[in-house]
Simulated assay, not measured.
Amino acid sequence: MRILVTGAGGAIGGAATARLVEAGHDVRALVREEDTPPDVDGVEVVRGDATDPAAVAPAVDGADAVVHLAATPAPLGRPEDVFVNNSCATLVVLQYAAEAGVGRAVIASSVSALGLAWAREVNSPAYVPIDEDHPFWPEESYGLSKQVDEATAAMIHRRFELPILAYRFPYTTTAEALAERAAQVRADPAEAVRELWAYLDVRDAAEAIRLGVESDVPGFHPVYVMAPDTLADRPTAELVARYHPTSEVRTPLAGRQTPYVITRAEQLLGFHARHLVAGDRTGETN
């Protein structure tokens, strides 16, 4: 396949680019002028901003699929800049991709759309495990931009019938950074109370992206993509009872199970995170 990756200079973008090339795909990477392109042989690098139709239109031309990852990755800077950049980029990329006849898109959403991670005070979910129907309560522009990104993707699908998967990523980084974060969380679980202790290794994010662009799943779907366990070393039920006592427990949480419903990723994509902080079910570790 010919695949355009926006935001290819970022951590997830670089890992996704490498994984797609490894899987035999031809990748075009859209990278801003000031960003370093992914260090992957055989990738066509094009310079431009994902908010700019003059850059996006030629970049999507001839692509079979688009992976849209370009975004300000947190509520950094002026709220209006974060919101406008993220929301505009998603609309431009998906609009021009659909008009160009691209067959599939995968975009980066975020658990931040729920409004928990960046809330002014600790904000507990209405219920756990959190599924894709949980309401959005963002209190800042980044979470709001991700909510709008999903609404934009749903609109593009309705208008053009472009299949789109919106991955709600948790805290996603390298194995080394996850190990450091896990040490902090295990010393004090309150360190990740806003994130509900969820995480994902960037290599698993890249694999989920590969599965998404290679899938034949129709429609628009938001999907939680994350590890099946948490960064904490205590039972999740104990953590929820202590730090989120107002949350309804709809299904018992076993062991260190992530307090999110991740079955949609399994059912639609066959995705299972393999790079876990404490090793996975098959014995593989970081």
Rank of each mutant, 00 (worst) to 15 (best):
E99Y: 08
A100H: 13
G101T: 04
G101Q: 05
V102T: 08
V102N: 07
V102D: 05
G103H: 07
I107C: 05
A108T: 09
S110P: 01
V111D: 11
S112A: 15
S112N: 11
A113W: 06
L114S: 11
L114D: 05
L114C: 09
G115S: 02
L116H: 14
L116A: 06
A117M: 15
A117H: 13
A119P: 01
A119E: 04
E121P: 13
V122I: 12
V122K: 11
V122P: 15
S124G: 12
P125G: 01
A126L: 15
Y127H: 09
Y127V: 09
Y127E: 06
V128P: 14
H134G: 02
H134T: 02
P135R: 04
F136K: 10
E140K: 00
E140N: 00
S141N: 04
S141E: 07
Y142K: 03
G143M: 00
L144A: 15
L144N: 09
K146S: 07
Q147L: 15
V148Q: 13
E150C: 09
E150M: 08
E150A: 10
A151C: 14
H157D: 01
E161H: 13
E161T: 13
E161M: 07
L162Y: 00
L165H: 03
A166W: 00
Y167H: 12
R168H: 08
F169W: 11
F169E: 03
F169V: 09
T172E: 08
T172D: 08
T173I: 06
T173G: 08
A175Y: 08
E176H: 08
